[in-house]
């Protein structure tokens, strides 16, 4: 089972946190900090799997990938395959990339809602929901259409315009 999905930037700032198991907000922050501490000290040429019983408890392993300014971190239990999760990260990032066209940290920061929506189409309740990027994109397109419907694109000025 996937216990948590985190996106953390190079400075340790969380950009997405999603926990699939019940833990207190304080503990969540602890996990985010600990994961970042462990990963930020790893050299770039080592593998993307970490197990550290002292930090995360028994049975938990971290599978991660580091892209540019972001760590994509999956905390999973022993029943998950590391390579499978790596592929899942690839699917996740690939989908983000498709949605944001050359995704960068800013996209994720300012569009937290989108990122959550995308993740919800890939992982659900700690289980892999879909790995087919075509299916995921299809589901997201449906959602996009719905989101846009009630709010037509602004043709007139919005917000406080000094007039």
């Amino acid at each position: 089972m996937i216990k948590a999905v985190l996106i953390v930037n190079n400075h340790g700032k969380p950009r997405l946190t999603k926990f699939y198991e019940r833990i207190s907000p304080e503990k969540q922050q602890e996990v985010i900090r600990a994961s970042f501490l462990v990963l930020s000290q790893r050299p770039p040429n080592v593998c993307g799997f970490v197990e550290d019983d002292a930090v995360f408890g028994k049975n938990i392993k971290i599978v991660y990938r580091h892209f540019a300014t972001l760590y994509f971190i999956f905390l999973v239990d022993k029943s998950e395959s590391e390579l499978g999760i790596l592929d899942l990260i690839q699917v996740f990032v690939g989908t983000l990339d498709k949605c944001f066209e050359n995704v960068c940290e800013l996209d994720l920061t300012f569009n937290l809602n989108k990122v959550h929506t995308i993740l919800n189409e890939i992982v659900m309740g700690g289980q892999v929901l879909e790995t087919n990027s075509v299916e995921i994109s299809k589901a997201l397109e449906d959602i996009n259409r719905l989101e846009r419907m009630p709010e037509p694109l602004p043709t007139q000025l919005k917000g406080p315009i000094r007039r």
Binding site: C99, F100, E101, D107, F110, N111, N113, K114, N144, E147, R148, E151, K158, G159
Partner: peptide
């Protein structure tokens, strides 16, 4: 990508 649409 649609704008988040929420300026605030």
């Amino acid at each position: 990508m649609a704008v988040s649409g929420m300026r605030g």
